[in-house]
């Protein structure tokens, strides 16, 4: 039992931090530009594939750095020559644009790398155990990923709280026009934030690819969960996105790990039902993928502005 708790907590935190890498960019872009970027998870997938392709030539570590940079450049181009033009026609047009873009990216990945997973893995020495507990190994790679995720969180906090650019971003979150009236180039700031958000998504792909699986369906597998994080955390709230990421990461991981059925739970509180019945026999593990969406529905009914948000979706 203790083993399950320790490892599920570690894995849940890691999954949560990966979710936060994706949702932080998405929520920044949303609150600045009012665009829910449907293609955000596709940039995450590109991050993983670029790291895989680059890694074949330059090695794992340089690829880890280069891939997010490349995706950031791509994001900047998409914002400058795509979104900025579409923006004049309103939010629905923008939404449809990012929706289309997501499919274009997904199909391009299919074309270039095929529909089966590619063998994007961490180097051999990183797959060695960092420590063993109760006979289960925790790999060095998982430790490294956790560290990168935490570093990224600290860097993001520092950027937004302590730098002049961060001040500008926070001001533009609520009063974009006024920031422009003071002589600051807000469209360029938007492009920078969009590119930065894409880079964070790509970084999640780079470090998450070897852990999860680098395949063409990875964007569609994670994309909806990232949207849930943003809504549950509260539209436009970074802190909310952080809490929601960890919450969903931990809940999903624990549900997968626990060998318990609905019937077992009901019996534990004294209901006395058949633990092998058609409904009561369903295990928590099989409900796990559904938990983010159950949370989404409950949040929208009972607290539509999310955990920390000020805006209603």
């Amino acid at each position: 039992m203790l083993e399950i708790i320790v490892f599920s907590t570690l894995n849940g935190l890691l999954y949560g931090l990966l979710l936060f890498m994706l949702s932080s960019g998405l929520t920044l872009i949303f609150s600045m530009m009012g665009v829910l970027n449907f293609a955000h998870a596709s940039f995450y997938m590109l991050g993983a594939y670029f790291a895989y392709a680059l890694g074949l030539h330059v090695g794992f570590w340089p690829a880890l750095l280069l891939s997010p940079l490349l995706v950031a450049g791509l994001g900047a181009v998409v914002e400058r020559f795509g979104l900025r033009r579409v923006h004049e026609h309103g939010h629905v047009a923008e939404l449809l644009f990012t929706f289309g873009l997501a499919y274009v990216i997904d199909e391009t990945v299919h074309l270039l790398w095929g529909s089966i997973p590619v063998s994007y893995t961490a180097p051999e020495y990183l797959r060695a155990p960092l420590f063993s507990l109760f006979g289960t190994d925790y790999s060095i790679y998982r430790g490294v990923t956790m560290m990168i995720a935490v570093l990224m969180f600290v860097a993001l906090w520092y950027l937004l709280r302590k730098t002049r650019v961060g001040m500008m971003i926070r001001a533009a979150l609520t009063h974009g026009a006024m920031v422009g009236h003071l002589g600051h180039n807000v469209p360029r700031l938007f492009m920078g934030v969009f590119a930065f958000g894409c880079a964070l998504a790509a970084l999640a792909g780079v470090i998450g690819g070897p852990l999860l699986s680098t395949e063409p369906g990875m964007a569609q597998a994670l994309g909806p969960v990232v949207f849930v994080v943003v809504v549950v955390g509260g539209m436009g709230s970074l802190l909310g996105a952080f809490y929601a990421s960890l919450l969903i990461g931990l809940v999903q991981t624990f549900f997968v790990a626990l060998d318990v059925s609905i019937g077992d739970l009901l019996n534990a509180v004294g209901f006395g039902v058949d633990p092998y019945g058609e409904v009561t026999g369903i295990t928590l593990a099989s409900i796990a993928p559904m938990t983010p969406f159950i949370l989404l529905v409950l949040i929208l009914i009972f607290r539509p502005r999310g955990l920390m948000g000020e805006l209603e979706p």
């Binding site: 002049r164 001040m167 500008m168 926070r170 001001a171 609520t174 009063h175 026009a177 006024m178 003071l182």
Partner: peptide, 15 residues
């Protein structure tokens, strides 16, 4: 249009 989440000093500095 003050920037509500920034401090008074930061508002001035962004000018």
């Amino acid at each position: 249009d003050i920037f509500p989440t920034l401090s008074v000093r930061q508002n001035l500095e962004l000018g």
